[in-house]
Amino acid sequence: MTASRVGLRVRAVSHAFADLHVLDDVSFDVPAGEVTVLVGPSGCGKSTLLGIAGGLLRPDSGRVEIEGQAAADCLNPLTYVFQDFALLPWRSVAGNISLVLEGKGIAKATRAARIAEVLETTNLSAFSHAWPKQLSGGMRQRVGIARALAVRPAVLLMDEPLSALDAQTRDLLLDEFAGLIAARGMTVVYVTHNLAEAVRLGHNVVVLSRRPGRVRDIVRIDAPLDARKLDDPALLATEARLWSLIRADAAEADREVLHA
């Protein structure tokens, strides 16, 4: 696959759901070929921001601009990976991947080849005929990744893709994500509440304040993804720094939720 050379510019985005002011004047860049992680306390608007970035939600004000050109074989420039996998239970693994390729003018043989390729990439070849209900959470998320890769995305938008999984599966998939993203030089926007994930995957970690979410800081991590280890002292120090930026807001947000 041609490496994506597409980035995003988020500019002065504000949004409210009725009386609930969720995002306030949020601006940051998503550089091409890098992973931008959004972190912040519960309810700070991380997923809302991802929805706006991907065109699933219109912001009340502000805009998101795409920079660069998607590869010729890119079928869906801004492609999501969902927290709850969003797989169709009535379609097999291969059927779920096929869904996003159907009706896009791709020959049947090409479609089959592309499905086989992404199944191979995500180690799912042996499960192509399985129903989603027959798979573990980790395997289902692999299907979600395979489905996203099948459309050759320019930007991958990942909404807490590991939060529904147990800790061991999360660590395994985190390493797989890092390997995949590093090998392909993909542009990724990754939402998480888990700071260990943020420092493992992020080149830029955008720290949002509690609701209404504002950019509190942007932390840069230069170490190559495939060289990072979760117990690296430098990464642990960055994780501690992120926590120090979020902690007070997280405590406030927790009380807000309790009183809501």
């Binding site: 991907g54 699933l56 492609t79 999501y80 969902f82 709850d84 969003a86 169709l88 159907e102 459309v151």
Partner: peptide, 26 residues
């Protein structure tokens, strides 16, 4: 969430109806 998924992959309205809504309502 399934309908949003279809929209996020730029499926047409007809495809979302035929491949997501109808089988889901079946």
């Amino acid at each position: 969430g399934l309908i949003r998924m279809g929209q996020s992959f730029s499926l047409s309205r007809a495809a979302i109806l035929a491949k997501i809504v109808l089988p889901g309502a079946l």
